[in-house]
Simulated scan of single mutants.
Amino acid sequence: MTKPATTVLGLGAMGSAIATRLRETGHDTTVWNRTAAKTEPHAAAGAKAAATVTEAVNGSDTVLVVLLDHASVREHLEPAAAELAGKTVVNLVTTTPNQARETAAWASEHRITYLDGAIMAVPEMIGQPDARLLYAGDEHAYDTARPVLETLGAAEYTGEDPGLASLKDMALLSAMDLMFLGYLQAIAMMRTVGTSAAETAAETERWLTAMLPHGKGLAAIIDGGTYDTGGQSVDFDRFGIASLITASREQGIRADLLEPHRRLLDDLAATGHGDSDWPRIIDQLTIR
């Protein structure tokens, strides 16, 4: 069975990994990159190297965009809009939800079928079962492009709103970012007594692995919406966070990463919610 011809625009680390995976799994692959020299190894391995974006998209019904940022997507697709009409464009550039929606609206104006994608993986994971790729937008386009998309990793369709894949990506990356900031706080504190970063990181990993399942309990409290389960209260958590801040400062370590948590708790206590379950701070995160 002939596999769909596919174009990859952008040959950074991720774009190169995607192009290589497609070529090695039997897809007729065309590549383009702003710096033409990056296409040479792919051409030598059997891909077609195009000199322009217009040339690159002509031979494929599915176009994967793996460029630098949101601005570069429009910059390079705009001149090829006429050639892209009737094709499926899958944007794998990291963008915000509203940027994804903006590109989808532009694509619709030019009769381009659009899918927004988010890659929950590093380049080395592409093609492996642990690589998770999220997609949002035209469901028919997702079904059509699925043989290509599943070549790259586990494909997950999140819904017709083009911003949903990006939103989930950004939410999960936010959780990851805050988690690793916690690693740095712990390492900074323990380094003051000569403990290596490697040792503290290993201790932190063991501790967080044991604690992560409790996240489901927090979710149940939030979904319940009453914040009156009798669990850990705002006032109790204020005491705990204050102790963490004091301990950091006693060791000569700044507590900038911890203080926003305390401010949210203090705001709740000041409005009479000291007895509430502490996850009520989620309501403080909404911009009013």
Rank of each mutant, 00 (worst) to 15 (best):
R206D: 01
D275Y: 01
D228F: 04
A44P: 07
G137C: 05
A19Y: 06
P123I: 09
R101K: 14
R206A: 06
W207N: 07
L181D: 12
L164R: 12
M179A: 09
L9C: 07
A198Q: 08
A154N: 05
I221D: 03
L92F: 11
T6C: 13
Q251C: 04
H27I: 08
V89D: 00
A17F: 11
A105G: 14
S243R: 15
D116S: 14
M176H: 09
G252R: 07
I187T: 01
Q185N: 06
S174T: 03
D143Q: 12
S233D: 04
D235L: 01
L68P: 03
S248L: 07
A49L: 15
G153Y: 01
G26E: 12
D28Y: 05
T52L: 08
V193E: 03
G225D: 11
G86V: 01
L67R: 10
T2R: 14
H261A: 15
L178G: 09
A36Q: 14
T54S: 14
A202E: 12
D223W: 02
P213V: 07
T226R: 12
G59R: 03
Q185A: 04
N98Q: 15
L164F: 03
A104T: 11
D116E: 13
P129E: 09
A210H: 03
F180N: 05
L134C: 11
Q251A: 14
Y114W: 15
R21L: 14
A175V: 14
L115K: 05
A175K: 00
D169P: 00
E150R: 13
R254S: 13
P79I: 13
L115R: 05
D235V: 02
S233N: 02
E139R: 14
A81W: 07
L285H: 08
I18D: 12
L84Q: 03
A141S: 11
R263P: 00
L167S: 12
E199W: 00
L68N: 13
M211S: 03
H273S: 06
I18M: 15
R191E: 05
T200Y: 01
D228M: 04
R21A: 13
E205L: 11
F239P: 00
T2D: 15
A105V: 13
R191C: 01
E83W: 08
R262Q: 15
S248Q: 10
G159D: 00
I187Y: 00
A45M: 10
A131L: 09
S60D: 06
A165L: 05
A197H: 06
P129S: 08
P97A: 06
A270F: 05
D69C: 09
T192Y: 00
L84T: 05
V89C: 05
Y114I: 06
G10C: 13
E259Y: 12
L149S: 10
L208G: 06
A82G: 11
I221R: 04
T54G: 15
G117R: 06
S60E: 10
L218H: 12
V31I: 12
D256C: 07
L92G: 12
G10H: 13
A121D: 03
T62A: 14
R21W: 10
V57Q: 11
P97G: 07
D130P: 00
D69L: 14
L11S: 09
A19D: 02
T29N: 08
R21N: 06
M179G: 07
Y157N: 02
A197N: 04
W32R: 05
I281A: 02
G225W: 00
Y183K: 02
M179V: 03
S108I: 00
V57R: 09
